[in-house]
Structure formats: C-alpha cells, structure tokens
Simulated scan of single mutants.
Amino acid sequence: MGGCCSGCGKFCKDFKDFAIQGNVMDLAVGIVIGKAFGDLVQSFVSDLLLPPFGLLFGGVAFTNLTVKMHNFAYPNNPPVVLRYGAFIQHFIYLLVVAFGLFCVIVLVKRLREMREQQKAQEYTPVPEPSEEIKVLMEIRDLLGAKTEARV
C-alpha cells in the first residue's frame, strides 16, 4: 500500500546507478568548470582587454558602439539599433576561448606523447634470440643437465 509499482522501483534504481556513474559526474563537473571559465574569459575580454582598445579609439566603450537606422516606413516607431560593438566584443571573446582551448589541446597532446615515450622506454621488448644463440643455449642446457647427472 505504501509503495508504487515494481517497475518504478527498478526505474529508480537504474536512474540512481546511471547518475552515480563516473561519466555523469565528470560531465557535471565539466559543465560547472566550463561555466566558470566562460565567465572568467568574458570578464577578461570586457573588463581588461577591450578598455585599452576603447581608449585608442577615442575613449569609447565597445558595447556602446551602435548604428541607428531610422525607420522611414514607420516614422513614429523608434529607430532600429545595430549594436556592432557588442558583436566585436563577443567575437574577441570567441577568439580568446578558441585560443585557450587550442593551448589546452596542445598541452594534453604533448603530455600523452611524453607518457607514450616513457611507456615505450620502460617496456622495450626483448628481441628474439638468433638461431645461433638458441643452439648455444641448448648446448649449455644439455651440458648443465649432464653435469648435474654426474654429481
């Protein structure tokens, strides 16, 4: 009386198993870190990178760069505003994020190559002995067996 159908219990168990798996948790952590990284880059672009450029262009803030298009068809309506400064800011943001991701990908690639080189050095396979060495080893083993039989 106090529960639901048996299918619901199985569903809840399956969902719990899915949610606790490492992949889902890794994805959740990645999304949170990605959001924080995005906010950091957005602040870097809008608060640190673009203001000096704004000074070079006469002390203007990029977000305030607009073009007003007067509405000739409906003169009583406000003009249409194209905010190309905000577009420039978002484009620079995209370039900074792309460069950051490029650096991370190159770093991960180099770390993997270094690890593969270390593994290759650690696990150098022993070469197969030549036929002459095999014959000499056989003779050695026979002589050893013969010596042990005499003792």
Rank of each mutant, 00 (worst) to 15 (best):
A19Q: 07
P125T: 02
L40K: 03
I20A: 09
I133N: 02
V24A: 03
F15E: 05
P51D: 04
V32T: 10
L65H: 03
T147R: 14
V151R: 15
A73T: 07
N76A: 11
T124V: 15
I31M: 13
A145C: 03
G7Y: 08
L27Q: 11
K109S: 13
M69N: 04
L107W: 12
G38S: 12
R83Y: 04
Y93L: 11
G30A: 13
G22R: 10
Y74M: 08
A36T: 11
D14C: 10
I139L: 11
T147Y: 10
A28P: 01
L27S: 13
Q89C: 05
T66I: 10
L82W: 12
M114H: 12
C12E: 15
V80D: 05
L82T: 07
K35M: 09
A73S: 08
C12F: 12
L50K: 00
L95N: 02
P129H: 05
E122R: 12
N64D: 15
Q42M: 06
Q21I: 03
A36H: 04
K16G: 01
P79E: 00
D39L: 09
M137S: 13
L50A: 01
A61H: 11
G7P: 01
F53R: 04
D17I: 03
P79T: 00
N23H: 05
P75T: 03
K134H: 04
A61N: 14
A98L: 15
A145W: 07
E132H: 05
C8T: 08
C8H: 07
F11R: 09
F99L: 10
V24I: 15
K10N: 12
R150T: 11
V106S: 08
F37Q: 02
E128C: 01
F53T: 02
C8G: 00
L49K: 02
M69P: 00
G3D: 14
E131H: 06
K68I: 00
P52K: 06
M1L: 12
K146A: 15
F18D: 04
Y74W: 07
L82F: 15
F91L: 14
K146D: 13
G100Q: 04
L40P: 00
L49S: 02
V60P: 00
Q42S: 14
A61M: 12
F57W: 10
T124K: 15
S46K: 11
I133H: 05
A86H: 02
K13M: 06
F99A: 09
A149L: 12
L49I: 09
G3N: 13
G30T: 07
M25Y: 06
